[in-house]
Design a protein around this nucleic acid. Structure first.
Lengths: 116, 116
DNA sequence: CGGTATCCTGTACGATACTG
DNA sequence: CAGTATCGTACAGGATACCG
């Protein structure tokens, strides 16, 4: 994943953004964290049908790239929260725009196919 | 690819956007077309180290989703151009924002790693 | 609760060779 | 020029079982 980002740097900044934020679930995760920190289980339920394995992978990648912060509370049972950094909040705005864009331009395309 | 988009509709609009625009090279392709239509070969050179096979795939997907228009001029040798639709132009703006975001927030992360 | 380990399938993508 | 066909590798991501 990091290697992908590194080679993207030699192409263009947009491709870097795609490498960092383009994975499945990543932008959805970020958007779910705008309202405030969430715990792992809650985040998994809110994000959609994502497996624990994949969610963990994506969260770790987002953490490595400085998009969110993982906090472990030393309790039993375990308690872990995820919250956005400034970088993550900025990314969340782009995620929202992408969502609006797909509602406006993509949904009609597929609705038309379903009708026809 | 279309199946991925269809299932994304059942999750959230952001995930639809990722499914449609999140593939490697797609946003870069779109950004290269903002200045005006380009031919296949030119686009391939401008986009970066993308193979003809992948570029073709991505262009077809973008066409299917109404993001760009492919025009074939019946000449010898063949002449094909790609140009953005309104949808594509709107997506290009988001692509630019993502590029700016990565320059501002991601580059420092990796520069710091390279230094350390 | 918040993961990890293992296995598995599907697909993305590049390289190369070829074509109308 | 603008692709297509074929092959091969890499990795994403789900399912399941298990752990501190």
């Amino acid at each position: 994943m990091r290697n992908k980002v590194r080679s993207a740097f030699e192409v263009c900044p947009i491709e870097v953004g795609v490498a960092v934020a383009g994975g499945d679930w990543k932008l959805t995760i970020v958007s779910k964290l705008v309202a405030g920190p969430l715990r792992f289980g809650r985040l998994q339920r809110e994000a959609g049908p994502v497996s624990a394995k994949t969610l963990t992978r994506q969260l770790r990648a987002l953490e490595d790239d400085g998009i969110l912060i993982r906090t472990v509370y030393p309790e039993v049972p375990p308690h872990v929260t995820y919250e956005l950094t400034e970088s993550g909040a900025a990314l969340a705005e782009i995620a929202e725009e992408l969502g609006d864009w797909s509602e406006r331009y993509i949904r009609p395309v597929y609705d038309r196919e379903d009708a026809g």
